[in-house]
Amino acid sequence: CHSECLGNCSQPDDPTKCVACRNFYLDGRCVETCPPPYYHFQDWRCVNFSFCQDLHHKCKNSRRQGCHQYVIHNNKCIPECPSGYTMNSSNLLCTPCLGPCPKVCHLLEGEKTIDSVTSAQELRGCTVINGSLIINIRGGNNLAAELEANLGLIEEISGYLKIRRSYALVSLSFFRKLRLIRGETLEIGNYSFYALDNQNLRQLWDWSKHNLTITQGKLFFHYNPKLCLSEIHKMEEVSGTKGRQERNDIALKTNGDQASCENELLKFSYIRTSFDKILLRWEPYWPPDFRDLLGFMLFYKEAPYQNVTEFDGQDACGSNSWTVVDIDPPLRSNDPKSQNHPGWLMRGLKPWTQYAIFVKTLVTFSDERRTYGAKSDIIYVQTDATNPSVPLDPISVSNSSSQIILKWKPPSDPNGNITHYLVFWERQAEDSELFELDYCLKGLKLPSRTWSPPFESEDSQKHNQSEYEDSAGECCSCPKTDSQILKELEESSFRKTFEDYLHNVVFVPRKT
């Protein structure tokens, strides 16, 4: 048989008469490798580009789960590009990614509803959504962080984005990388972005840091009482949809009607710091009717980097990364020049730590249904340095008659930039024990000054392991946590139920 035959053949030295091919099969003959313009397919066939392209389009058009959109890589027609490569849609070739590779997620039936953290986790790592997304989240724990972890990498949506009755959302900033909504599939009414009845939605994105392009379709905003109209108009300008909307697409009466839409800028007039305090004062603000001013709200939190936005980490279910302080308005003076500047002394802060701070007014709604208010920009203030805590785990070892090696770990709280350490030492008198000992005694162990690591005695271990207080009263049991108490109650309830079950099964009433 021919060298490319495997198993047997019907005619000697003829690659077209093989029972099976050793390498690849091409047009009725066995070959060692697939010549151009053919590609290896499933490690035994040679196919042309049209064959591989037909497989790709067949799966793409069917949208069946589990099928493969075949691509070409290293002269092979394979189910998908290997790690580190992405497909070129024009020629199906796998090309190296520039940075992290995109991950295209194809949605069944063309859309997916995100109504819980669990459903959001199914899209973790996706960068391109081939379909439409509907966000409908009523509640949950730590929602802002969970949504950002699972949806934060999405850069492109081919269909539309719909935010509907998501009472738990305060902001859409968890879509931190969303840059493009194509609108290839539109919501009824030709809408590519749809926001309806979101009672706590206050911000779409921080438009000073976020760009969003909507290729096709219109915007729809109705019944978002805490979303200011200025935020919607800003989205029109940034996304390129200005002029597409009709009169009733953006409701003037049901958007922002319960919001404090600040239209003035508060400026800080005085800032002073110490290692654990920050004193702030800002310019006074009074609405047209000074009785509408209820006070100020001061927001602050630790910020290692200057990239904080107002609604980071917030949701309507209680999660809030900001510390909020309510401040009463100052006494009002008739003389504008003698107006008191409101302020606040922030206490209990960490030394040498940068804080993000902003302040906003708290006002009631005027009778004319106009909203007044003022808010400052987010500023960054760093507390002063102070003395560091003591170095940890000092170790001293003498390696000769004239040297001592000293080692330690950095302090747990540096409280500033540590530039150097101060080492103090003092000579001590020799131990009298060394002169009084009889060095001729056998088995004498000389006193040693070398360091030995501390260890816990058996008594201390027994005390720590004991669940009861000892007789001397030195140790006591740790208080039980809520989960331990709940577990004990469940076990007790189970024992009672099981005992009742045994009584009912074992003891049967005697027939009379």
Rank of each mutant, 00 (worst) to 15 (best):
D292M: 12
S158F: 15
L178F: 05
L265C: 11
P391H: 01
V308R: 04
A144C: 03
F220D: 05
S119C: 09
S389C: 13
E283H: 12
E231H: 05
L172K: 00
R370H: 04
R179L: 10
Q314A: 10
W344A: 15
F268Y: 07
K253I: 11
K226Y: 13
T213F: 08
F358C: 00
H341W: 13
E236I: 07
Q199V: 14
V128S: 10
V238G: 15
G152D: 09
V359R: 00
S166L: 04
N198G: 06
G139Q: 15
W322A: 02
L180H: 09
Q245G: 10
V363N: 11
P225W: 01
V381R: 06
N190R: 06
F311I: 06
T241E: 11
L298A: 11
S173H: 14
F175C: 01
G256W: 11
W352N: 03
L266V: 06
C261P: 01
S274T: 12
G256Q: 02
G256L: 08
H233V: 12
S119P: 06
T386F: 02
I405A: 10
T323A: 13
Q382C: 02
R176P: 06
F358A: 07
L196F: 03
R165T: 12
G131E: 01
I188S: 07
G373I: 10
F275N: 10
H106W: 07
Y191W: 05
G189W: 11
S396M: 09
H233R: 06
L133G: 00
N150K: 09
K360L: 14
S192R: 00
S158Y: 10
V325W: 14
P342Y: 06
Q314H: 15
L280S: 02
S119I: 10
L280Q: 00
I271D: 01
T241C: 05
G125R: 11
S274F: 14
W344N: 12
R347P: 10
E246C: 08
W207L: 07
L392Y: 06
R176A: 03
D335F: 11
I188K: 11
G373P: 04
W352D: 11
T215E: 11
W205Q: 01
N340H: 12
W352C: 06
L229V: 04
T361M: 10
T118V: 02
T185S: 13
S192T: 01
S400R: 06
N263A: 03
N320S: 05
R332K: 06
N211P: 06
E109T: 13
E109H: 11
G348H: 10
A316N: 13
I214E: 00
N211F: 03
I395S: 11
R244P: 11
E184Q: 10
F174G: 02
S274Y: 14
M235F: 11
Q216A: 04
N255L: 06
I134E: 15
Y380P: 00
G373M: 11
L212I: 13
D206W: 06
G139T: 06
K242F: 06
S260W: 05
G343P: 04
L349W: 00
N198E: 00
S173A: 11
S171K: 06
S158N: 06
W207Q: 06
V381S: 03
R332V: 11
H106A: 02
P351V: 12
V324F: 10
I129K: 01
Y167L: 15
L294I: 07
I357A: 07
K112P: 02
K360P: 00
A316P: 14
G348S: 11
Y305E: 09
G131I: 00
D257G: 13
L153Y: 08
L172V: 08
I137N: 15
F174S: 12
E156M: 13
K267W: 07
R247K: 10
W344K: 10
P284E: 10
E155P: 00
F296R: 00
Y223C: 15
E237M: 13
S269C: 13
V325C: 09
K360H: 02
L219N: 09
N399H: 11
E262L: 15
Y380V: 12
K218N: 02
L180V: 11
N130G: 14
F299D: 01
R182I: 12
V324M: 11
N190K: 05
P351H: 05
I404G: 00
A316R: 10
P351E: 01
S208Y: 12
L204Q: 01
P225G: 01
E246I: 07
D115H: 05
S400N: 13
K103S: 10
Q245N: 14
E246P: 14
G240E: 05
S173I: 07
Q339G: 13
D384P: 12
A356T: 02
C126N: 00
R176Q: 14
A303Y: 04
I395L: 11
L107Y: 05
S321H: 10
S376G: 02
L266S: 01
R202P: 00
I232M: 02
Q245H: 05
T273M: 06
N150R: 06
F193K: 00
I135F: 08
L392Q: 05
S171T: 09
G159I: 00
D328K: 15
R281K: 13
L151Q: 00
N211C: 13
N130E: 08
G159M: 01
T215P: 15
L252E: 03
K218P: 12
S366H: 10
D206F: 03
L293C: 11
L151E: 15
G189R: 02
N255W: 06
V397G: 04
R291C: 04
N263F: 12
M297C: 12
Q382T: 08
K337P: 14
K360I: 05
W286R: 07
G131S: 03
N263Q: 06
F193A: 02
Q382W: 09
F296D: 03
S396Y: 02
F311W: 15
G152C: 06
R244N: 08
P351Q: 11
A374D: 05
